[in-house]
Design a protein around this nucleic acid. Structure first.
Lengths: 212, 212
DNA sequence: TTTAAAATACATTCATGTATGTATGTTGTC
DNA sequence: GACAACATACATACATGAATGTATTTTAAA
């Protein structure tokens, strides 16, 4: 939580300071959203958590949806893009490096509390009916791109002979997507009782078992 | 949508008729919840969809949460219990029958529109922060039981020699849970463009590949 | 001086919960 | 079996609070 520089109240900020309160509002929004859920979160609560008034919030954002969209664009979409990038560099054994990457990815959920909170927000603490629907639609491209990269990945592995030719890349892609998503949700729901660092290697060993 | 018998308004109903309007309210709630999302759904909308007034709703239920809990108890918890029961009968080849059961289960999502709507409601159209949290907690037992049955299932398969002994039943259970959940969510989100009847056999063939 | 970055004040909407009305079903009593 | 007494199953009306959006004001930066 960014704390605003302690000027006397109602003092006009410089450009950088303004940008700073904007960020403070966004960070506060993550907190309030994850605690109360997006729907029950109120702008007053967000403002208070950011040490400002609703006036500041309305100065920077149109409404609650606008805040959520901003967060989604800043955090969730880049996250999916990260997945894409992380798959670009192919090692000698594509399948093995893919497996390692998957493990590292979900393990990051255990290490990076902020990532966990953010992802939990977008996967668990909101529903995308109504005004939040646009967020899904906007990430469709990123998701599709991710799937295509994955498919190419499997095809490459097949051409290298490290992946059995009778496995359909499209199906493998869908399967891995579902599996990852399920793991993420399961962990985010039970982060207190579950150790992903222990489970992830075992889980993906089962999943990638004898694919070659 | 159950239609109430066309009596003139404000006429007292018999016990059975009252039970009927209670059901009408619940069915209407499913509709409104899935369309608007649980949070944005209003009791007025539910009442209107059930052809009653809010008075009737408040007669049968304490508030919106009460309605949701009733639905959850009537529909989601039994569904998990169904999973448990469906796994009890072990065929000659446990692993093969498990695979068939999984396929049949997700295929049911495509055939049974109502099931799809209901499951979509509980997996997609609500978040369990706040007052809805009790629902999760109440299903914990059912989920744990389901996992235990699955584990026993794998152990049995191992003792019969149809499942490799080096696979950990606990891990397989968790993996399958995650996989199923991911598939369900992926399909529910894209029910219009995705054919589960085609994908499910391929997906589970990948998942259960060479486990023996 | 003008304008950006807020705070403050105000109006409005909207959903909720509750209180009340009311017509009818139900039940015990004779 | 009739009838009073009561309970039930709602509809209607109302009070309230809470969140929202906007209009206005304040302060200092540019």
């Amino acid at each position: 939580m960014l704390s605003i520089s302690p000027k006397s109240q109602n003092m006009r900020r410089t450009k950088e300071e303004a940008e700073q309160t904007r960020n403070a509002i966004l960070e506060a929004a993550v907190d309030v959203f994850t605690e109360k859920g997006v729907a029950r979160a109120t702008l007053e609560q967000i403002a208070k958590a950011a040490n400002v008034t609703r006036g500041a919030v309305y100065w920077h954002f149109k409404n609650k949806t606008d805040i959520f969209v901003a967060l989604h664009d800043e955090l969730h979409r880049p996250f999916i893009q990260d997945l894409v990038d992380g798959l670009e560099n192919t090692g000698d054994d594509p399948l093995q490096s893919l497996k390692s990457y998957c493990i590292e990815l979900v393990t990051r959920l255990e290490d990076d509390l902020y990532l966990r909170r953010v992802l939990s927000l977008f996967l668990l603490k909101c529903d995308y009916t109504g005004s939040l629907q646009v967020c899904q639609e906007r990430t469709i491209d990123a998701r599709r791109e991710k799937s295509e990269v994955l498919s190419k990945f499997f095809e490459k592995a097949q051409s290298k002979g490290t992946l059995s030719a009778d496995l359909d890349p499209k199906t493998l892609t869908l399967a891995l997507n579902c599996f990852m998503r399920g793991i993420a949700m399961e962990y985010l729901e039970n982060a207190d009782t579950m150790s992903i660092r222990e489970e992830a290697p075992k889980l993906f060993s089962v999943f990638f078992r004898k694919w070659n």
